[in-house]
Design a protein around this nucleic acid. Sequence first.
DNA 1: CTGAAAGCGCTTACAG
DNA 2: CTGAAAGCGCTTACAG
Lengths: 341, 341
Amino acid sequence: MKPTVHDIARSAGVSLATVDRVLNGRPGVRHVTRERVEQAISSLGYVRDVAAANLAKGRTYSFAFVLPNYDNSFMIGIRDEVEAAISRSGAERTQIRIVEVPPFDAPALADALDRIAADMPDGVAFVAVEGDEVHAAVGRLKEVGIAVATLVSDLPGSERDHFAGIDNHAAGRTAANLLGRFAGGREGRIAVLAGSMLVRDHRERLEGFVAVMGESFPRLAVLPVMEARDDPSLAADVVSAVLQRYPDIIGLYSLGAGNRGIVHAVREIAPDARPLVVAHELTRTTRAALAEGLIDAVLNQDAGHEVRSAIRVLKGKADGLPVIAAQERIRIDIFLKDNMP
Amino acid sequence: MKPTVHDIARSAGVSLATVDRVLNGRPGVRHVTRERVEQAISSLGYVRDVAAANLAKGRTYSFAFVLPNYDNSFMIGIRDEVEAAISRSGAERTQIRIVEVPPFDAPALADALDRIAADMPDGVAFVAVEGDEVHAAVGRLKEVGIAVATLVSDLPGSERDHFAGIDNHAAGRTAANLLGRFAGGREGRIAVLAGSMLVRDHRERLEGFVAVMGESFPRLAVLPVMEARDDPSLAADVVSAVLQRYPDIIGLYSLGAGNRGIVHAVREIAPDARPLVVAHELTRTTRAALAEGLIDAVLNQDAGHEVRSAIRVLKGKADGLPVIAAQERIRIDIFLKDNMP
DNA sequence: CTGAAAGCGCTTACAG
DNA sequence: CTGAAAGCGCTTACAG
């Protein structure tokens, strides 16, 4: 039988309360007593039953998720996953609320973080926007002991405990690799469409993309990035215009949102003149476009993984536990039409 | 506060034992009483605390994993994951043992399953080999109420409850899609190397691969499949020979194991004459070859996911619960050198 | 058909 | 600094 606290208490000749104090590193135990208990723990090979401990503690973790209130499919997916987590709250001893903020707005984000801090939750997850105000607000959260994780877009150099998202530089490199390979030695131009260069994840994707294009595919010329603010109709216009302007475009990398517009623009083109397209995030739109052959590959970050990982990490941090890096790594999925989930 | 069994008992005017009987669908409750309790459950919005229930039950699940005792990296990875699960046994209320069998040997597998049945575990997971003996042995396991899952390689048409593995047909299609795209319109031959056509996963990959090649890449001619029994040195010989014989081979699909030999053979070739290579399973060998550019893409099934999923499903089946299909789907990962985990 | 009591493995006031 | 007792939310003999 697995040893329990009772076995340890008996073996060390102390009470359950003392065993518990030692187990949880609480003060108020004489050194010799502590040693006797530790001796018993290791000689019996005790491992604590976390479920039982949580039951006894009745601990519930309170978290806030700060999400931009805009309506691209990916962000909706993130919100859905947070809501799914909320619906599991009972079973997972968490209490989660969603706070919405305007997108790409550092002061508003910083404000929201400060207001949340006043409630003293156990942890906060937020989609970062760059700005000194945000750095400062993170500092204030940490100062009062709140665990902080960035989600999807990171804020390096801040005091956040963890980033739950993909390596966007690697994502850009992967996109370049795919597009370059698919081009198969042909010569031509590559158009790149982003949401905004003010968001770090978009910037990093672009950097990775341009780097690999330069290193490995010198026959493909990358046009200056176009920003369409993740807006489908703007994206459609921009793409149509650039494709008209440069007839030798053979590939398009959509590194932000607004893919609905891009698909729309590409569909207008004669099938044999369509560019290769690599986009981000598997949504209803990109899924259909993959199936139809309008998009060639989709890079994806699993929103469910990200949200669940953020919660796991915040729980751990709230209890002062270290993160198991390998387990929390969010990977870059590649989907072609044949391996869609 | 979340309602508990006590709240329901009070609200329905019955004892805890009766609440428990209703909650677990056990017999011996008058119809009117049952209805009163059910009414209380739904009006209070009760959800049971599974952790507490498990604690009270003290239930532990006993499982057996039947694995082929051969030494390719992927199978070693599977075994490592089962061992990792064994080391978590304490926390997960499971008791798991590994049973080794000779590979590709249906009678031996069937024997092993029968011997396991005698111990009456709660569930069995095994890497299927096709054969009537195996079908019959699965039938006997199910007859005595043991949950059965196939792992990595399936046994359709048998009475197994679940398959924890990828859609190998889709994997073959994906490989063809990648190789065809990477070939970029060039004309030439494609060589295919398998372990054995007696294993279902290899056969299915081949089928999917050939289908897409035929549909979408008519300029690429697929050579007859070569079987190298997952043996690296045999694979090296076979690949060297075929590359020498057909100088117009521009791509190679390795759908089984033995990639060490393939990498070895490819390395011998002048860099600009090397074929495109798509292989399966991210191992030390394929990872290094990806980084070095000797392999162009690796399709992967996550051994950890597969093993954990099998355990989850067996637990559920042992308790008569349905599988949440979406959660247990094992996906086909694509790795290029830039998105390796 | 129904209930009172004990117990799963841990934690927490409270008392000394 | 240490311990006895109660309790977390559920389940399980046992008795009636």
